[in-house]
Simulated scan of single mutants.
Amino acid sequence: VARNPLASPDVIGVTHGAGAATVAALSFNAVAADALPYVSVAGGLAAALLVYVCAWRGGLHSSRFVLVGIGVSVALGSLTQLLLTKGDYLVAQQAKVWLTGSLNSRGYEEAGPLVVVLLVGLPAALWAARAQRGASFDDDTATALGLRLGRVRLGLTVLGVVLASVATGAVGPVDFVALLAPQIARRLTRTAQTPLLSSALAGALIVVVADLLARRLFSPVELPTGVLTAVVGAPYLMWLIVRTRSRSGGISS
């Protein structure tokens, strides 16, 4: 949608919105544990809507979209920390573990809602696999091809936010998976567009390998999965930013 590899859910505030909403629900004991995934979806959608509205100025410019998303992420991160410091100590500890993104003690109970959402969202995902090819073109080309760009972007955004938010609600925000997986899939398949099926498989493989390493590297201490993905993803994010800026400088010069 943003035509920018930096615009992943964990960079532009979607997972931070899901996380802030979930921590708020835990801190105020507002909902039952079974309803937390739905709270995460609501938080992710609200954060995405805020970024979309703030970044829209007669069009959706990719750099503005990412910058606004980063700002929203920082603000939501600060809100989450405020909730942690003001809430109950035991709840805050539970929320902190959740915020690192961990598969510890996760089983079929947490997998159930994910399976339901994936089954319901499968037709939409098949549509997205085709629609994102046209949406990746510039506005004039996509319009000339007869694509209703506004509706397509809205549909892709809602689908992506729902899937990312449901995953966040199940295990917490496992950062950088959404940033790494599409880039790995594109390089393996050598395609210009993002291959959704390959990206999904790459993301699943990253999470499984990170979880295995988190369990085995410092055994008997078991690290959260999000720690391992952040160790790999953070340097990659910095490299990607430098590469994007150097390309922009070359084009502008």
Rank of each mutant, 00 (worst) to 15 (best):
A30H: 02
A210R: 02
W239Q: 08
A30C: 08
R190E: 09
L197V: 14
L197I: 09
G146A: 08
P182D: 06
P5D: 13
G69N: 07
P5W: 02
R187Q: 09
A192D: 14
V221D: 15
V11C: 07
V161L: 07
L228R: 01
W127H: 06
P123E: 06
V68L: 05
T229E: 08
T80S: 12
P235H: 07
A21K: 12
L154I: 03
L213M: 15
A167Y: 02
V177L: 14
R243T: 13
L149C: 08
G169N: 05
L83Y: 01
L154R: 11
L240N: 12
P123C: 11
S27R: 01
L197D: 00
S136I: 03
A181M: 11
Y89E: 10
R216C: 14
S8A: 15
S63W: 12
I70F: 10
L228N: 05
S40M: 01
D175V: 13
S78I: 09
T15Y: 00
A131Y: 04
R57K: 14
S40A: 15
A125W: 08
S40K: 00
V31K: 00
E109H: 00
V116M: 03
I70K: 02
L99R: 06
F176E: 05
Y89N: 01
L179N: 06
T194G: 08
I184H: 05
F218S: 14
L196A: 13
G155F: 08
L201A: 14
G19N: 07
R187C: 05
R106P: 03
A125P: 00
L76Y: 01
